[in-house]
């Protein structure tokens, strides 16, 4: 078991005929993801070549899910159309299967579009949204697995560490740190760096706690908002598995947006220090340097009798 995405999950690609969509769909197939086709309105009936095989393209997500019985979709649609792509996928999954996972990679979606899209998805409780502005979700398998997003597949291996993060490359850093102590990953979830997004830290922690494959968790936050503080307080009461944490942005000046739309200290709130303190108060073992995540994780595993 992993969380939300099984190794052999059937995956659709929205925006599969675009440059980004096609490039990453190819990489996903190369990794071993069970891609079953894609959706681009107006290009239904065409096919795309990925790793030497043909994959069908549909005009709508309803058609695509009805035909393929897909479990998940990944969105590489440009910002002006991405929120609608999320809602189309959520509606189709809800009506056809009553469930599904929607992963949105797109960066730069207007915040008020996301307010609308998140409310739409929340009205469909069987549907889970991951992102936007995130690297995606990956469940490494034995030789291949399900890589749904833009992360480099080859740095991962199947294992027992669950990773959840707001950042892309910093997640890869965390993955590399687990590998440096010979630990693989159950599932890695990038929840994204936008102010308004789908799945949050708490839902990821809850799923990792319930997942039998996951034995420890790495949680990577960054400045802005108070999702990390809330997650830490929740974890203290509800998570029994060891958690290791890091927060990026200790040196970020207040009032400046640091790359991610949501990474901003406003009104003196949302600092890295606040978040580290909340982590420590909840018993989360913190690394102040991401290159130390492996060492801190190893200690936590030992303390829990897992090494």
């Amino acid at each position: 078991m992993a969380i939300w995405i099984e190794e052999d999950a059937k995956v659709l690609v929205q925006g599969i005929t675009g440059k980004q969509g096609m490039f990453h769909a190819d990489k996903m197939v190369e990794y071993g993801t069970n891609i079953v086709g894609g959706c681009t309105p107006g290009k239904g009936g065409q096919t795309v070549e990925l790793q030497g095989n043909s994959y069908p393209v549909w005009n709508s997500m309803f058609e695509a899910i009805e035909t393929t019985d897909a479990d998940a979709t990944v969105i590489y649609v440009p910002p002006p159309f991405a929120a609608e792509a999320i809602m189309e996928a959520a509606d189709a999954f809800d009506q056809i299967k009553g469930e599904g996972v929607v992963v949105c990679i797109t960066e730069g979606i207007p915040t008020l579009d996301m307010v609308k899209a998140v409310a739409f998805v929340e009205n469909r409780p069987g549907v889970r949204l991951i992102g936007p502005n995130c690297p995606g979700i990956i469940t490494p398998g034995d030789g291949g697995g399900a890589k749904i997003g833009i992360m480099p597949g080859h740095i991962h291996a199947k294992g027992r560490i669950g990773i959840v993060s707001k950042s892309g490359t910093l997640t890869y850093e965390a993955v590399a740190q687990t590998m440096s102590i010979d630990e693989g990953q159950s599932t890695c979830v990038g929840i994204g760096g936008d102010p308004v997004n789908g799945t949050g830290f708490i839902e990821c922690l809850a799923a990792f706690e319930a997942d039998s494959q996951t034995e420890a968790i790495v949680m990577i936050g960054e400045i802005g908002g108070n999702a990390e503080q809330e997650a830490a307080a929740w974890a203290k009461e509800n998570v029994t598995k060891p958690i290791v944490g890091f927060v990026a942005g200790a040196t970020a000046p207040p009032g400046k947006r640091m790359g991610h739309a949501g990474a901003i200290i406003s009104g003196g709130k949302g600092t890295a220090e606040e978040k580290f303190e909340a982590f420590e108060a909840a018993g989360i073992a913190c690394a102040r340097d991401p290159s130390e995540l492996g060492a801190v994780l190893l200690e936590s595993l030992k303390a829990a009798g897992l090494r």
């Binding site: 993060s165 950042s167 490359t169 850093e173 200790a250 040196t251």
Partner: peptide
């Protein structure tokens, strides 16, 4: 640096 999170972390570690 590539990536916003890693770019912040790089600044933090320099300071550290």
């Amino acid at each position: 640096v590539n990536g916003a999170g890693l770019a912040m972390a790089t600044m933090d570690v320099i300071k550290l």
